[in-house]
Simulated scan of single mutants.
Amino acid sequence: MPHNVILVVLDGLNYEVARHAMGHLQAYAGAGRAALYKLECELPSLSRPLYECILTGVAPIQSGIVHNHVSRLSNQRSVFHYARDAGLTTAAAAYHWISELYNRSPFVAARDRHTRDESLAIQHGHFYWVDHYPDSHLFADAESLRLQHAPNFLLVHPMNIDDAGHKHGLDSAPYRNSARSADIILADYLQGWLDAGYQVLVTADHGMNNDRSHNGLLAEEREVPLFVLGDAFSFNPDATPAQTQLCGTICELLGVPHDKPVCRELLK
């Protein structure tokens, strides 16, 4: 049975901080209505390469998106492409690099900030380009897209956790409080999404270190959370999902043809 899917990528969120700071998400897990898994992000642990990895299932060294300044359209097939080609509706409220990867590159704010074009991979979009763009506004952008267009696949991608990490580092109150804030904002939307029949995945591209950066092999840079919520998930505690399996797993939920790796243990 096909399902609609919302993917939330909380940019820069370290696993341990997610585990102890995301009280609302952990309440779902404690009630047996969600599960939390630890993922190890691919290398390099940088944003644009890992957006590509999450959304296409292809590691950076294979995709060629090997650092944040590789500014071009992806040459891989993403969740957005599979969904659109199957006749589904796609949407994203996200950082402008997502638009550059799957819609048009370079990003031109006046043209691309608000996107509505059925021919594009991301058919409906609200894109931002400053890292301090408020998470509260970004989630409202995403909910506006959901209510207006009823997308089958919706990407929600806020940046304030990563921004706090770059300004203050991993072991800092502002970084941890940004994670808590995102959890509180999610609390305004999550049950409504589930009631509307969406399967929800909440993850991160990479973590953060005490040097106020990321790119390497430290656990705090590579270990990220994956919360899954919805009646299509198994909540199997023995599942071992990989970041490269998220694209295929989402395609399985959507019921669209694809050729990507899947973590079947996540699904009923």
Rank of each mutant, 00 (worst) to 15 (best):
H132S: 13
C251A: 08
Y15P: 05
L217V: 12
R72F: 01
K268A: 08
S99F: 14
P60W: 05
Y198Q: 05
P60M: 13
G192V: 00
H67R: 10
L50M: 14
F80A: 05
G32F: 02
F233C: 06
P257E: 02
Y128L: 11
D85Q: 14
S213E: 07
D183P: 04
D117M: 02
H149W: 13
G57P: 15
N210K: 06
E42M: 12
W97T: 10
E223D: 15
V5H: 08
A83Q: 07
N75T: 13
V58F: 12
N4E: 12
A94C: 11
V9F: 06
E42P: 01
A109K: 15
V5N: 09
Y198R: 08
G255E: 05
A142M: 13
H206D: 07
K260A: 14
Y102D: 06
L226E: 00
L226H: 04
G169N: 08
L170M: 03
L55E: 05
L226P: 03
D211W: 11
N236A: 10
G30I: 00
E52N: 15
E143W: 09
R113K: 14
D195Q: 15
A94T: 09
D211P: 00
V108G: 00
G23D: 14
V8A: 08
A92G: 11
V108E: 15
L170F: 10
I185K: 03
R212H: 09
M1N: 12
A232H: 07
A196R: 15
T244A: 13
G197Q: 08
E252L: 03
I250H: 05
H137W: 08
N160M: 10
A173V: 15
F235Q: 06
I122Y: 12
G255N: 03
I61Q: 14
Y51L: 15
D231I: 00
E100I: 12
R111I: 14
Y37I: 13
G255C: 03
T249C: 06
T244S: 11
Y189A: 00
A83C: 11
Q199L: 01
A150L: 15
F80N: 07
R176Q: 10
W97N: 09
A59W: 04
G207C: 06
P158L: 02
E40P: 00
P49Q: 11
M159G: 03
S99V: 02
L266I: 04
I65P: 03
S74K: 04
D141I: 05
V17N: 02
A196D: 15
H124P: 10
L46N: 06
W129F: 12
D135S: 14
G197D: 09
Y95A: 09
L194T: 13
P60L: 13
V228A: 01
A91R: 06
S99L: 10
P174F: 01
A196N: 13
H81E: 13
A91T: 12
A18T: 04
Y189E: 05
S45D: 10
H81T: 11
H132F: 09
S136V: 12
H149M: 04
H258T: 07
R222F: 01
L267R: 06
C251L: 09
E100R: 11
G57L: 06
Y37G: 12
N210Y: 08
A150P: 01
Q76Y: 00
Y28L: 14
T240E: 15
N14L: 00
